[in-house]
């Protein structure tokens, strides 16, 4: 991926708080320091010619922020909107700058404390999510939650790569946007369709 090879974010050494939420039936967690706020799902405006895992943009008190659907990003069916749906507003680092992005979630679950010894290394297979997006697995009694490296997942670099490749597709005869970070939305700019 075009991003400069930044090392994996370090897990906090001691106890830290995590927000857990559900997406496509799986419980995920993010370090609470990354979460700015949680807002009720409001209309998300689709932006044409962007990868399908970008649901669109929404209005956060006058600021227009992108919203992503992790379910699509992780190769599953798009999230269905219900009355529990919400948008987790996160601060993501991109080229040394912090940008605000929303993560669509089926429901937020809870805030948990996890000590370092309550976090297991991610097994090499068995999860539906690419290992590079995960920092580890949080142990919650008998259940697990997948701790996301949210900077990696929402790497704006990837967003750009895809939008640019859509443009390239308009210029070159074809370009497999799909291999560059996710399936692109069908577009009549692309490949002369």
């Amino acid at each position: 991926m075009g991003a400069k090879s930044q090392g994996k974010e370090q897990l906090p050494v001691n106890k830290a708080q995590y927000l857990t939420f559900f997406t496509a039936g799986e419980e995920y967690a993010v370090v609470i320091a990354k979460v700015r706020e949680i807002i009720e799902y409001d209309t998300v405006t689709t932006v044409p010619n962007t990868p399908s895992w970008i649901s669109g943009v929404t209005n956060l008190r006058g600021k227009v922020i992108p919203v992503v659907d992790l379910a699509v990003k992780f190769g599953m069916q798009p999230s269905r909107i219900s009355k529990f749906s919400c948008i987790i507003v996160t601060d993501v680092m991109f080229q040394g700058e912090s940008i605000t992005m929303g993560v669509l979630s089926d429901a937020v679950s809870q805030v948990i404390d996890l000590a370092a010894d309550e976090i297991e290394k991610t097994p090499p297979f068995g999860t539906r999510v690419k290992n590079e997006y995960l920092l580890g697995m949080g142990v919650m009694g008998k259940k697990f939650c997948l701790i996301l490296d949210i900077d990696k997942v929402l790497s704006a670099d990837e967003v750009l790569t895809v939008t640019e490749s859509v443009e390239e597709a308009g210029n070159d005869s074809s370009s497999d946007a799909a291999t560059k970070g996710g399936p692109a939305k069908p577009s009549h700019f692309g490949a002369g369709a």
Binding site: T45, V47, P48, N49, T50, I54, V57, G62, K63, V64, I65, P66, F94, E97, I99, M101, A156, V159, L160, T163, E164, V166, E167, G170, F189
Partner: peptide, 17 residues
């Protein structure tokens, strides 16, 4: 006019939001 931000720097056909 609100810029779409860095994440959408080069979206074809859209100037902003």
């Amino acid at each position: 006019v609100k810029p779409l931000g860095k994440a959408f720097r080069s979206v074809h056909g859209i100037a902003g939001s």
